[in-house]
Structure formats: structure tokens, C-alpha cells
Nucleic acid binder design. Sequence first.
DNA 1: TTTAAAGTAGTAATCAATTACTATCTGACT
DNA 2: AGTCAGATAGTAATTGATTACTACTTTAAA
Lengths: 204, 204
Amino acid sequence: MNAPRPRNLPAEERRNVTVEAVIDLAGTMNPDTITTAAIAKHMNLTQGALFRHFPNKEAIWKAVMSWVADRLMTRVEKAAAGIDSPLEAMQAMFMAHIAFVAEHPGVPRMLFGELQAAKETPAKRLAQAMLTKYAARLNALIADGMARGELREDLDAGAAGTLFIGMIQGLVMQSLIAGDMCNIASDAPRVFDLYRRGIVAGGA
Amino acid sequence: MNAPRPRNLPAEERRNVTVEAVIDLAGTMNPDTITTAAIAKHMNLTQGALFRHFPNKEAIWKAVMSWVADRLMTRVEKAAAGIDSPLEAMQAMFMAHIAFVAEHPGVPRMLFGELQAAKETPAKRLAQAMLTKYAARLNALIADGMARGELREDLDAGAAGTLFIGMIQGLVMQSLIAGDMCNIASDAPRVFDLYRRGIVAGGA
DNA sequence: TTTAAAGTAGTAATCAATTACTATCTGACT
DNA sequence: AGTCAGATAGTAATTGATTACTACTTTAAA
């Protein structure tokens, strides 16, 4: 039934497994407190063996953030692709983001943690770059929506972007208080409805 | 000119100074990476001396979270007190919260950090208790606003509460990306305007 | 049999916490 | 007023545990 799971993995696959282990662990603890020993234990490896595949811990975090930026942006952009209406595209983007977070609860924690790190690490730069790209994508949609008259012409694009990110953070916060990610998927559309009312054109 | 500043402080004042030092440090680094050595250094004290006033590090965090819960709730409730309109009260609450965060950038980081801690610490319980109280206060205002017809009668109160917290988190996130807290106060009212549109009764 | 991948067993640095000791403040008694 | 005894608050050095990281040896798969 189970795969045979060889003890020795090829280097690249071992690196992938390491990244997944970190993301997994970040779902149950503060990312900054994850030790190399904990990572190794979680993937049934000795601690020292990790350093055969990564030069140092910083490189592990760099790989993790790279994975996050890649996967999250791909998912989000794929969800919005092909949707004509900017507003519908924003909703699809939002729901895809929430689904990703529900699958990987550690991701928003890692992003928040990296952003507030004191030192300028490669991982922090990756996180900043991703969020900058994300914000640009969002602003383009908002500008398009305003141009088309779908969104209010007097809409504050900057505030709309901040609140979009805030929706996600608010839902994450809520799930942290609740202690699980169960409700996040069902709460998300209800929060977006509120958001939509704040940005769409036309009263009523 | 300067106060003489006695080297030896009375125990209670020393504990207060310690709490302030931690909140200060949390503004420039990940709260979970703050060491007792860093705390002591920041307040011109030797590391061991801290343990003359606190039994252990956990007790320091408990004192810090207690300070946060006290001050934040007091500020927020005082701001909303005496305002008849629930919607106006919510705005006052929000602006007071943002002002507090601008003064103490470490506070939202500590709250977020405590909530995602793996272990059930006294500090984590204090954070959860504060947010529960906060949510209750918010829900009461929302219910009142709906009853008075100030807010939409079909408003989703839960979603409105989540988005309220999300506004704050979104602004904090934005300030983390920007690298400073400078813009948070001026961005806040613009975000609240968006929020208001999502919850008020009547179209147009 | 070859070799990439893992285990074993360390290192120095840093962590929270404790120790033995010293400095400083305070109030009671001459 | 002066002073000195007890209490309080501090320093400096050190603890064992834990951290990221490394040197050397063993194993397993092709």
C-alpha cells in the first residue's frame, strides 16, 4: 500500500522534502522558532544531514520563501487568468489565496515573520519582492475596474489594496484565535461581499 | 538638566521599565527573538538582574501582554465612550487603535506572535482573552448599529468584525513593507471610508 | 564497486537561569 | 544630626541546555 520510501533520496528531492517540512512545521508553531533539529526530525533525518543539501539555515529559508512566492503567485494568477471582469478577477484571486492559505497555514505566518525580521536576509527580500508584485497586480486590476466603470471612479486604489491584504490577514487572525483553519474557507466569501460593497460603482 | 536617574530603581518601577524595554524592542525585531540579554542591554542592566524581578522569561512576557491588554483596551474604550452613533463609535475605536499601534509598533507583532505560539503560555491566554473581549465590544456596536438602522439590516456581523481586525492588520502589513509607521495614521481614515461603505445602510 | 546520501559524534556560540558577592538606600536609635 | 544595621537592588561569573554547523565514518543503491 505505502510507497517503499527509500531512505536515501536524490539531492533535489531531499531539498524539496525539506521545504515541505518547514512549511508543515510553520503551520503549528512560530516560524522563527523552527530549529534545524526540528526540521530534520519532522522528515526522519538526522540534523547534520540537512547541511549536505543546504550550505546553512538561511539557505533553507531562502528555498522556502522561493517555493512560497512561486506557488502562491502561480495559483493566484492562474485563478484570475481569463476572467474579463476586474472585480470577478479580484474575487477569484482572493479565493485562490484563501484556499492556498487553508492548505498551508504556515505561509501567512512566515510572510509576516520575514517582513518584521531585523536583518535583511535573502528570504526577507523574496517576501518583499513577492508582495510588491502582488500589489502591482492588484493595482492593475483596480485601475482597470475603475476605467471600465465597474469600480467607483472616486475609489482610493491604495486603500483598496491595503484592505484586500487586510481581508486575508483578518481571516488568518480569526483562524489563529479559533485554533484551526476550518472556517476560513466559508468565512472568506462573506468577507469579500463586504469588501465588494465598498469598492463597486453605483449605490443601491 | 537630566534627571539624576538613580542606578537602583525600586522593584515595581524596574518591572515597568522592563515591560517598556520589551515593547520598545518589539518595534524593531521579531518579538520571539528578543533575548533576556537584549532586554537587559536596552535598559542598561545586567542580564542576571532581570531575574531578581521576574521568576523567568515567561513572567516577563506575561507582564508585557498584561500591559498591552490594559492600555490598548482602555484607550479604545475611552475613545468610543460617550459617542451615541455606533458607526461613529466604531470609527473612533479604530482610529484610537491605529494611534496606539503607531506609538507602539511592536504591539501588533507581539499579539500575532503570541497567537501562533505552539505552547499555551500565560501570555498567549492574555492575548486571546483580550481579543475575545475586543470582538465582543465590536459585535455589540454592530448589533446596536443594525438595530438602529444605521448599518445594513442584512449585514453579516461576523464578517464585519473580521474585516475590522483585518483593516488594522492590513495597515500594519503595509507599514512593514514600507519599513516605517509614518503613513499608517494618514492611510487609516481612507481605509475606514471603504469599510464604512461596506456596512452602512442605504445605497448611494 | 563506486559514490552519493545518510549516520555518528563532535564543535563553538548563545540561550535562560543561578550563583556568590557588592553597592545602595532607608529608617531606627543614640 | 549622625551612623549603622537590615533590606533591597545591583554586578560579574558561571551553569547546563540548546543552537547552527562540521569532520569523519558508514550505508545503500545503481
